[in-house]
Design a protein around this nucleic acid. Structure first.
Lengths: 216, 216, 216, 216
DNA sequence: AATGAATGAGAGTTCATTCAT
DNA sequence: AATGAATGAACTCTCATTCAT
């Protein structure tokens, strides 16, 4: 079995599934639709995936594996909590902002049921939150982040904010650039929404970071 | 049709549906399951709801209608952006934190498909975000909130943070008190995660509010 | 129980049923539709009829009973086979031609199934064909009708021709006068379609009859 | 899709449906009954027909298509209106007289509702009546048929007579030969039921034709 | 490896009928 | 006599999955 050809076909199925699931919804989508879009016979899908659910799960796992690996690699090269958080936000928003169908699958279809949710929470999502947790813990230790806030709450709030940006973006018609939201989200996260007496003087940290990356 | 009897039965169906949908998932749940749990015949459900989907939609609409009405009423009595945001957070987290099945339906089952999502975004959710938007706009005008952040992003980040607290709580076994997270979430939202030079002196506002309500 | 009021309600149900069955078809028509049109509650129907089928059957029996009785009465006053056949044709076509809904029920809805068909064949329809049979037998005996044709075939052909006029009329949009077809149908039946050598001289019988009744 | 295998299965379904519809009635017949009788799974039916109604409609269309084509072919070889009408009668009565189940479906089940009736009237039945119309018109022009009768009434009366022979035959227990009725029906149609002065001399036409074909 | 015809379990929904009021 | 809310049996059709080719 030629490695590449097989891989190609598997990949083609996943790409077809992304489109079909995003447009019709996971339940309404028929396996036959995915097969047709991938240009193969219905039965062939079962040579690459155990069942319909396995397509969805694999789709998720493979995208996340690559995404998290890339994220970790880039983070190693960065210094400072603000810069790291900003990098994560940019990656998160760009990954989904660049592929509407994938975003729909991630934000909507993958959250069909507690069964799915639990599966994801237990796998990559745990990794993702641990990545965040690590950054925050580090920030609290080196004094760049407030130590009085519960670390997990902080991590979840950060993730939740990003997640909501994506969900909201999906449901709009106007296809604005999701990546641009990284800067205000991180700014809000770090400095808070409350007006302070002298914000510009006391906390200039993010500004520099943001201006260096915010484009796109 | 005697108002009370009818209302009772309809209510019983909604309560049964909440439990059944939460435990089996909306798709896996059979209408017959809901009927059985409500102690009525299958067909009776169709005297009160057009179809299965209408049960889910009604469940949502009726809970939200009451929730938003109560929220607006209480907000009128409160002064100051921090107090208002804190009140919203407490309500949001308590509503769902006090009813695990309802929370599952809201966080998971109602997000089955873009069709549902769009429906909700268009209805109550719009109201909810507009409520938040109003508070934030007011805060930006009266100087209590930073005027340099995009209002919509701020509102979505706040909602996203709360939403993630609930989703995360659902998927845990440990049934900790969701309402208690209101204080740190609002604190984080207002003052940010970043350590500032003299936080205690410059921004004492929330502390007082939070200490007055946080218990539960 | 006041005799008339009861009779009224029963009648109202039958009239409502005629309309509803004609427009929606017997199977698609719901008992509730009939009740609504009759202005009564669903359950009330079951005080007057055993079940849905009983409505259809009663509708038929009651109309036919009256129709056959009237037919017999008028036939007694008539002399000659042509006149009698013409009278039957006129009655048949007028009865249904004056009430489109009733015609639809008789031509279409009552022929739903062999079960129905057999029931009708066994009851009034037998009477109707026997009436025809009698007239034809009499005609064959008195020399006005050919004796070489099988009596039953002749009777069925006559009925079939009338029946088809009605069915065809139902399915047209143009609401032409069905009764007017009695004359040509009886003419065709008596004298045949074939051109004869001297038709005007040899068989003038019907002409006189027809001109005396054909109007309307 | 192998043409023959497919065609076989489709044919098997139609044959099974004819039997099942004839015996239980179209409405009472379950799709599962048809599948079982055809020796296939329920779902397989839907690979060949859109739905239950489509089975009935296809049954009709396919039989009629063949029947009309055969009819037209044979008519071309015949000379004279009497011979043509006799041929049509024989075909009509034999087609249904040789297959009791098919006859039941055609006479009873296909006349379930005005919806069906209109469909048939609009399709093959129109063709059939036009065929008759054409023969009659031709007969009126060449002097073999009386020109004073409305052509459409004549065509409908002829069809109605045949139709009634079939319907009546279905409802009998005694399985007499339907085809034998062609001769008396055509004779009646052409020469009429009325006794004429010298029938044997003036109109011998049909006798010859009938004696040549009537057997069976 | 690939096909695609065949399978058959499964569930939402309707509606004739009942019966407590 | 009349009501109409409640019942629950019944049935079409879909579609994930299999397997002979």
């Amino acid at each position: 079995m030629p490695r590449t050809r097989t891989h190609d076909k598997r990949q083609r199925i996943l790409e077809a599934a992304t489109k079909v699931f995003a447009r019709k919804g996971y339940f309404a989508a028929r396996v036959a639709d995915v097969a047709q879009r991938a240009g193969i016979a219905d039965g062939t899908i079962y040579l690459y995936f155990r069942n319909k659910e396995d397509i969805l799960v694999s789709l998720f796992d493979e995208v996340m594996e690559e995404h998290i690996a890339k994220g970790r690699a880039e983070l190693r090269a960065l210094d400072g909590t603000p810069a790291k958080l900003h990098a994560i936000a940019v990656h998160h928003l760009r990954l989904l902002g660049e592929n509407h169908d994938l975003a729909v699958v991630f934000q909507v279809e993958l959250r069909q049921s507690t069964k799915f949710m639990e599966r994801f929470t237990a796998s990559w999502f745990k990794d993702y939150l641990e990545l965040l947790n690590g950054i925050i813990e580090e920030g609290q230790k080196d004094g760049s982040l407030r130590p009085d806030l519960p670390r997990k709450v902080v991590a979840k709030a950060f993730f939740g904010a990003l997640d909501e940006m994506v969900t909201s973006w999906i449901l709009r018609r106007k296809d604005y650039d999701l990546g641009q939201l990284a800067t205000p989200v991180v700014d809000l996260f770090l400095r808070g929404a409350q007006a302070s007496v002298k914000p510009a003087e006391t906390r200039p940290a993010l500004r520099a970071v943001a201006s260096g990356r915010g484009g796109r």
